[in-house]
Design a protein around this nucleic acid. Sequence first.
RNA 1: GGAGGCUUAGCUCAGCUGGUCAGAGCGCAUGCUUCACACGCAUGAGGUCGGCGGUUCGAGCCCGCCAGUCUCCACCA
Length: 872
Amino acid sequence: MKELPKTYDPKQVEKKIYDMWMKGGYFHAERDPEKKPFTIVIPPPNVTGQLHLGHAFDETLQDVLIRYKRMQGYSALWVPGVDHAGIATQIKVEEKLRGEGLTRFDLGREKFLDEVWDWKNKFGDRIVEQLKTLGCSCDWDRERFTMDEVCAKAVREVFVNLYEKGLIYKGKRIINWCPHCTTALSDAEVEYTEKPGHFWHIRYPLSDGSGEVIVATTRPETMLGDTGVAVNPNDERYTHLVGKTCILPLVNREIPIVADEYVDMEFGTGCVKMTPCHDPNDFEVGLRHDLEQVLVLDGEAKIINGGKYNGLDRYEARKAIVKDLEDGGYLVKVEEHAHNVGTCYRCHSDVEPIASDQWFVKMQPLAKEAIRVVEDGEVKFVPDRFSKIYLNWMYNVRDWCISRQLWWGHQIPAWYCADCGHTTVSREDAAVCEKCGSSNIERDPDVLDTWFSSALWPFSTLGWPEKTPDLEYFYPTDVLVTGYDIIFFWVARMIFSAMEQMKVPPFHTVFIHGLIRDPQGKKMSKSAGNGVDPIEMIDRFGADALRFNIITGNSPGNDMRFYVERCEAMRNFANKIWNATRFVMMNLTIDKNELPEKLELEDKWILSKLNTLIKEVTENLDKYELGIAAEKIYSFIWDSYCDWYIELTKPRLNGDDQDAKLGAQKVLLYVLTETLTLLHPFMPFITEEIWQALPHEGEVLMIQKYPEYSEKLAYPAEEENFETVMAAIRAVRARRAEMNVPPSKKAKLIIETDKTDIFESGRAYLSKLAYASDVEVTKETPENLDGLVTVVTDEAKMYMPLAELVDIAKEIERIEKELKKANDELARVQNKLANENFVSRAPEAVVAAERDKADKANALIENLEETLKALK
RNA sequence: GGAGGCUUAGCUCAGCUGGUCAGAGCGCAUGCUUCACACGCAUGAGGUCGGCGGUUCGAGCCCGCCAGUCUCCACCA
């Protein structure tokens, strides 16, 4: 027999086991017509990213689900892959270039893209390798990249398809512009944070010299782009001014005063400066009143078209302009004013609203189906509350700006004709204008939003638009697992994209989880330096421990704090399993896993508990209650199997009765194997390692059948009977602990009970677990209780001769106390049972349970009273 | 402005459709060189489940109000 070390060392195991799985091809999902498919696509992490705890959480949940389904006999496919992550990746490469004193423009598009591909090839495998250390059972044969050929084809198809349907258009709108990333962003990519600011009141003199209007603004520098002043048409203070013009200070431009409902009379001065090119509302007002559009900020947010201010950064310009206004007597007053500023979700620079020509996806028609499938329950969110968040967003969704002024990404398949001005949008790269045939065409330099390609992920990864066998078999996918923070970015867009292209929802369930935070509840981030590296955790405690830590102690959709100590606790759990196995193996003389014909009471107890566990765990997993399932297995292994059952088998294993010995071994092995199988999706490495060492049939645990509830192994009566023995043992231990009797001090144990057979059969382990030198089971009360310590339960009265420790007076006092407690309990229960309403309206089982409680309390009281009488 | 979450033992959190639901881990106390494990074993202390009302035979669990806290959406210049 193999000698196992005393402590489990994941490092010796995990890599070896993973390699074995890989070699065996167990991650690969076959299109098996005999099986039902179960598919998950991974939320593709950034190709050059590193695994953080958020990933670890996400991937662990998916791995548990996929392993569970695989073991249940599904053809379980987990499609892995990575995302090209347009902005994020481009920024990283540009930073690297900056270190060399270069910009992307120095290289030019082609060379720059070569650089990015190099970067991708250099770091692209890192996160994949990290996923493997976590134990992810992805089908690596099907790994995809959002920029590979298959995905590119899907992107091209969808773009052209939507364009042809009029659902993609190009237009001049106010978009969110990041001056640092120098690209447009979608609404979803802007994060708002409240920042302190000022509210400047500025005097705009009327052109006719008859007075002035005072406007209030938080962005004085944008006045360079002002082409009007708006007031509310119902604002009597200003009606006489509508139609007049005023002079824009510093610029000396004559601009009209217009009336528009948009203006809030209550706010500020009621006069609003209109900057159509740099404010979304002003843009709309400008269109309605035909105001001129003057762009005063360039892509880096430096002033243009602003005379002497040209070239100034927006913040410098603000200072200069405020000073000049003040010097010129135009500044009326300045107020403190906190307001929300949009920032780039990637670089956190202030986002600039700028009028710009961009490509958009028209959302209203697409949102319709995306709303319907969730409202109709074709796509369910777990927990359900996230469907409200999703729907609310979808109801109010605005057109999606999809063009990005980047180089890294899917370049937009649009060619502009220099001759006729026509735009050719095409699945194949265009050589000539489709309208006039001119070859004088130029491709749009912009690329698509990264999320445009991830939106197609559930079907592009399976080969769409080709009708591949994979697509046929594995689509639609089943569950999408992700954090609530990317519902809008990704989940929503996958749903409407799939509905438009596939006419079928991409998945039936969206399983949402929360964020992992630091012990203070703060978001983990690189800049705050409070991030915990999952790889380090795996290194220190093992992947299984990390996984178990992440799975337990939280509930679906809620954030959780990460405690290293919890990893330690889970490492201890792994060690516990390891040692339980050591125990079983060092007593093992059989090489086949089968139950014995004769089962002892304690065997039936543990088998029945196991059976219940199987039922509950399966139910919990089916309801996505992974944490609850995991905790139940934990407590079964630790509390039931290790703390009780193993101890119970020791007398048999160490005894001379060969049949009993074998019986105990068999049950030990059976229960251990079943439990390992149950636990495998959560702790794949240690369970596989142990399973391999135990007698088994089949190649690997990871494809064994998941345990199923069996009517044959339900022993409710025996379970209950054994619990009464346990209660007796606990009572004795508690009594001894109370009196500070060390385990080494044994005492005879006399058990007076009506259920002699139950206690009789447990004689051996009773003596062990209750530290008895000898056990006597009887129906008779001992004649003389002098010098006996008494322990009373509802099923037994027990006596231990520990004369030197016994103080009769104290004994009596204690029993009277217990008696009072029992009486209180009885009164409570009887009171309940006396309630007509309760008895008639509560479910039968509940009433029966109460009656049972009453019976037990009665029995206990009776026992206590008898003992008390005897003592006196 | 709108929506939602959270408030349960010293700490961090579980508690599924209202009836063993008052729990877990860590921490704490006491005692254990018990032949798998001190990354352990046994025993124990500790909570009027944020507050106030209501529904119900029965409420951490449902409803309303209040307080604290966090988040998301919208974004009045």
